[in-house]
């Protein structure tokens, strides 16, 4: 652990510039730049508010319910898709610079995290008008976002590593990704799902994350311990799998990129 930190310290410029590069590439070719990234959640929000606002009477304050889920969903979906391509995109750098290969997914997610946090500011303002409770409980966002980011990193590392060898992993993920949106209780309440299909929702890792996210944003409380532990277990297991897969095949990256 200390070794990793020391290594990061020595190479802080590398980390900084890789993140800088990712952000530059992301927003360079659009006049509105960063504002585009706000458009995506905003458009979905409008759709849900106009079409579904009366569909789920069981949810009090539906706008806040949707928005809190949506913002985090977009972080997940954008982050995993970006990480899926990260090694392929950086093939030339990987082949010529002797820097740890984990820096590429780390900095890619770093860029995504920065956009997500910047986007969170205007959306928190909107949420405030929707009835978000501004309390000290919002500080729980820090561990929640941290845990969620590690989860996204682990999923992305699995996808990105496999994608080097099997290029259709990326295509497959593009199909699964939207499907997961509908399988996660983002725009609808989880208790709406028929009893015999409940397991689909409950085995979806995002369900547990949405729970703790909504504890903070929607209920204005601390995350429930039960779901927090679930998320911790999910993240640890995913990270372990990701690490094992990555370690097994990383030496083959160069010849397959």
């Amino acid at each position: 652990m200390f070794k990793i930190l020391a290594m990061l310290g020595n190479r802080k410029y590398i980390i900084f510039f890789l993140i800088y590069k990712n952000l530059q590439l992301k927003y360079k070719h659009s006049a509105l730049g960063f504002l585009w990234s706000l458009l995506h959640p905003f458009l979905y929000l409008l759709i849900f508010l106009t079409i579904f606002s009366h569909a789920f009477p069981s949810i009090q304050n539906y706008p806040l319910y949707v928005l809190s889920g949506l913002v985090f969903w977009i972080y997940f979906s954008g982050g995993t898709s970006a990480l899926c391509l990260v090694f392929i995109k950086n093939a030339f750098l990987i082949k010529s610079f002797n820097i740890p290969k984990t820096f590429y997914p780390l900095t890619e997610l770093g860029g995504e995290l920065i956009s997500f946090l910047l986007g969170l500011i205007p959306f928190m303002v909107i949420m405030y008008f929707m009835g978000l409770h501004i309390t000290l409980n919002l500080l729980y966002l820090i561990p929640v976002i941290l845990l969620f980011s590690i989860f996204i990193f682990s999923v992305g590392l699995i996808l990105g590593s496999l994608n080097v060898f099997f290029r259709d992993v990326g295509i497959l993920w593009n199909t699964i990704n939207p499907a997961m949106f509908y399988l996660s209780p983002i725009a609808y309440p989880a208790n709406m799902v028929p009893e015999r299909f409940k397991f689909i929702v409950q085995y979806n890792p995002l369900y547990h994350f949405l729970k703790i996210i909504r504890n903070v944003f929607y209920d204005g409380t601390a995350p429930s311990l039960h779901y927090m532990v679930n998320c911790l277990v999910i993240t640890t297991v995913t990270a372990l799998i990701a690490f094992l897969i990555y370690r097994k095949i990383r030496n083959g990256f160069i010849s397959n990129l």
């Binding site: 590069k21 530059q24 590439l25 360079k28 070719h29 030339f92 750098l93 082949k95 010529s96 610079f97």
Partner: peptide
């Protein structure tokens, strides 16, 4: 090496 680390969009 040729083209090493050049990001064409930047």
């Amino acid at each position: 090496a040729l083209g090493a680390g050049i990001e064409l969009e930047l």
